[in-house]
Nucleic acid binder design. Sequence first.
DNA 1: AGCAGTACCTGGTTGC
DNA 2: TGCAACCAGGTACTGC
Length: 276
Amino acid sequence: MPELPEVESVKRGLAKELALPLVVTDVELRRPDLRFPFPRTLRAHLRGARLESFQRRGKYILFRFDRGVLLTHLGMTGSWRLQSSRDPLELHDHVVLTFRKSGRSALVYNDPRRFGFFDWIDRDQSLEANRFLKLLGPEPLSSDFSPGVLKSKLKARSAAVKVLLMDAKVVVGVGNIYASEALFRAGVRPSALGKRITSAQCERIVESVKAVLQEAIESGGSTIRTYRGADGKAGDFQSRHFVYERKNEPCRVCGTKIKHIVQAGRSTYYCPTCQR
DNA sequence: AGCAGTACCTGGTTGC
DNA sequence: TGCAACCAGGTACTGC
């Protein structure tokens, strides 16, 4: 489901709704696994831990506790919601964290497809050593993601540039929607091979990725099917998509019919006139 | 090494 | 109306 703007919106919603610090009084793991089994010690680590802040890295939300970090990924259909600890649970609610506080004191993780996953990082371990985080490339909205860096990551690659933009080792946070949208804005064909992308195109791609992600964050993300922020709100950036899910509709710039192709098993949308 | 394809799941939509 | 096929915002694993 979520790409960087949606994950960032969820993180901001959590930070807004929860007055930190909060101590976890109960942890309910309603099944033994999501995509991967929960770490065996997860419940013991969380119970009694004090939640101090939220952080995002790529599409991961990091819950920072006094004694370590809960790493969470929403997969395609994961969501967090806050409710009273007395409110009933729903289908596909897999994890419930209860906090010591009156009122809406339960944080519930729901995930129908269960592609999401959790991990635990002890306080004495570095985040960079984590099996998931150590694979990640630069944050797209930081100066670490520059035309020079992108060029060096694409120059020896024979995969298509759209597929490479979705590779977290190249840049984090860009998924299927924003890869298509950014390449439209950059005027670059999604099927162009990484090694054929020029320095000038890298400049436009970097600028477009930053712009489209920033604008999407400001709109609260894209709500295509099931996305909801932690405050229950949908985003509305989907109304400003130029190409995504607009097969055979007229290009908003030149009127040409938007094309749909499949790359690495995923749908890609582009304008054959605007993207050469 | 790196690429393409597959697997993991449920549920909504489409087409017969 | 019913049912099967197909598709979905992600990522890790496999086999070539």
